[in-house]
Simulated assay, not measured.
Amino acid sequence: MTSDRQRPAHVAIIMDGNGRWAQLRGRPRLFGHHQGAKRVKEIVRACPGLGVDYLTVFAFSTENWKRTQTEVAGLMRLFKSYIRREARSLHEENVRVRFIGDRVKLEPALVDLMDGLELMTAGNTGTNLTIALNYGGRDEVTRAARRLAHDVAQGKLDPRKISDETLPRYLDTHVLPDPDLVIRTSGEARISNFLLWQSAYAEYEFIDTLWPDFSAAVFADVLSRFGMRERRFGSVKA
């Protein structure tokens, strides 16, 4: 475990490789997504022992609607079954759950489950789990800018006083600290429109492990490497 000074309090993960993991085993892509959902539970449970207070996972992007209708429909069923199945245990384990992303395009039954889980866990004080669902960084900033512009038009906000601390108050993540570390699994080295504003000074780890193989031990290993990094936030070492 890393020291308090070096530990990442907030880790964000792009959970990539579910479909490839399944195809390598001759199974349909949705089988990999089901295995990946099980892995989330293990990683959430590992967070307290590893000193991670906030965990944000990228479950479905605004671009994922381009996938086949079969895969998208299967993912939506998976999200609903995951919430129904895990809600009680997440609550009993003191996990605070939040969802970020645009809910307008999601079916009402799923949104109701999301709202219910957030309400159920609102008073919990353990790991903060944030699930990005129908989320895109550009979409989030666009929606935030729209709300900010509305407040300016309504006279609630003086445009002369807008700074780089103003926009974050309109983001989906306004109640969360910025991520210290962003992990992407499966060997891809891109950020895929994930937490664009929030990750300006995050450290990145791109690893070859496919998400269904991303165990608590792999997680701990990645965090240990984070502990060896020197974060300067634009300054120089004294």
Rank of each mutant, 00 (worst) to 15 (best):
residue 145 A to E: 05
residue 149 A to R: 11
residue 57 V to H: 00
residue 121 T to C: 07
residue 213 D to A: 15
residue 225 R to M: 12
residue 47 C to V: 03
residue 119 L to E: 14
residue 25 R to F: 11
residue 70 T to R: 07
residue 64 N to T: 09
residue 218 V to I: 15
residue 108 P to V: 07
residue 196 L to W: 00
residue 214 F to K: 00
residue 178 D to Y: 06
residue 27 R to P: 01
residue 57 V to T: 06
residue 29 R to T: 09
residue 72 V to K: 00
residue 147 R to Y: 03
residue 225 R to F: 10
residue 95 V to W: 02
residue 161 K to L: 14
residue 24 L to F: 02
residue 34 H to M: 13
residue 186 S to W: 10
residue 232 R to M: 04
residue 133 L to R: 01
residue 28 P to I: 09
residue 67 R to L: 08
residue 213 D to N: 15
residue 37 A to F: 13
residue 53 D to C: 10
residue 173 T to N: 06
residue 202 A to K: 00
residue 34 H to D: 06
residue 34 H to E: 13
residue 83 I to L: 14
residue 42 E to P: 01
residue 208 D to A: 15
residue 218 V to W: 09
residue 223 L to C: 10
residue 73 A to F: 14
residue 202 A to N: 00
residue 1 M to P: 13
residue 32 G to Y: 06
residue 76 M to G: 02
residue 62 T to F: 11
residue 136 G to H: 04
residue 209 T to C: 12
residue 56 T to H: 09
residue 134 N to S: 13
residue 52 V to P: 02
residue 88 R to P: 00
residue 18 N to E: 10
residue 89 S to I: 14
residue 130 T to N: 04
residue 199 S to M: 11
residue 28 P to F: 09
residue 24 L to E: 15
residue 219 F to W: 09
residue 208 D to N: 15
residue 125 T to A: 11
residue 237 K to C: 13
residue 180 D to R: 02
residue 211 W to K: 04
residue 96 R to F: 07
residue 157 L to Q: 11
residue 127 T to W: 04
residue 40 V to I: 15
residue 178 D to Q: 05
residue 169 R to C: 10
residue 27 R to C: 08
residue 83 I to H: 04
residue 123 G to R: 13
residue 7 R to N: 04
residue 118 E to H: 07
residue 162 I to H: 08
residue 136 G to K: 00
residue 238 A to I: 07
residue 179 P to D: 12
residue 224 S to K: 13
residue 228 M to C: 14
residue 224 S to W: 01
residue 169 R to H: 11
residue 144 A to I: 03
residue 21 W to G: 03
residue 233 F to C: 10
residue 35 Q to M: 14
residue 120 M to W: 00
residue 67 R to Q: 04
residue 193 N to A: 07
residue 189 A to H: 12
residue 210 L to I: 06
residue 170 Y to K: 02
residue 142 T to C: 09
residue 204 Y to F: 15
residue 220 A to S: 15
residue 155 G to D: 12
residue 85 R to L: 05
residue 145 A to I: 13
residue 9 A to P: 00
residue 80 K to W: 03
residue 67 R to T: 06
